[in-house]
Amino acid sequence: MSFQTGGSFRGSAKDLFSPAQIQHLMRVEFDRAQRYNYPLVLLVLGVDRLAQLQDLYGADVKDEIQGGVAGVLRGTTRASDSLGYLVDDRMVVLVPHTPDRGAEVLARRVLEAVRNLRFECDGRVTRVTVSIGGAYNNRKGELSFATMLEVAEEGLRVAREGGGNRYVHSDLYDFFERKRAKDAARVPAPLPAAPVQIPDTALDALGQRIREMFGLGEGDQDLLARIQREVVASALREVQEQVRRALPDEAREQSERIELLERRIAKLSESLGMTEAELQRVLAQRSVDGGVASVYKNVQGLSASAAQAELKKTLMSKIFEANVELRRQIDAAPDARS
């Protein structure tokens, strides 16, 4: 079974950034956009009913269709936009310096171009559509990258459930931001306190101190024990409360450190990629020698003004004739080596 893409858009999904790469790029670009206050658009898209098409036409179809869509994305976006694919066959387009109206124009252009793609399978023509979910960063209030991605994915879900071949911007930023904040605040409850073993010496010291403070005598053992229990319980509660308060702060600190490290990794990956590309370019230039041009554009031959021109002319003829004769002898005895 052969499956061929028609139309002017051809490509390969493998040309796009991998999920890990695009995640890094998106985070870096998002942080930059927030810091320098420029508009950013995120589009998440998926081919409608791709699984059914794969069942119908075979495994190669998926790659061919995704390649075609990747070609469309390459053809309709700018070189500065980032294209990648996420898990579950979704693709993502990150479009910096573009307002929401521009995103709608881009999305409609992609929808139309994909509709015009023509896939031929065993003589039958098949067409596909895509669904697109979009999100922007041009809103007031706090916005995290995770929320932006969730909004775009929600848009894709709604577009697919609406029948596909459409673009949806769900505008559910506040909902996802609150949900995210709630999730972040939902720190794991402190583990049940293990039975606390307080050393006898500490208890003795505590008892002594209580006796001194309250002026208790030898006959007040029950009261002393009750006060001791209360003091210990109160101290443990306070410690647990401190631990509970410290955990979110620690989690936030760790999260920030992770983000910082991810940004550094993305930056290093980018410069590593550029360095490798440059090295490849230099290596390629080394191995492919352009050569040095000859000073002659045509066959020269002997100049009439050359010294002993006639003699040299005769010599050239003789050398030529000797070589012709040599070829003749070689042709006549092709096994001349043996």
């Binding site: 002659y296 066959v299 031959g301 002997l302 030529f320």
Partner: peptide, 12 residues
Amino acid sequence: AHDMPAEFWEKL
């Protein structure tokens, strides 16, 4: 090589 006429080169 320089002094050899063009037709000789062509023939070989």
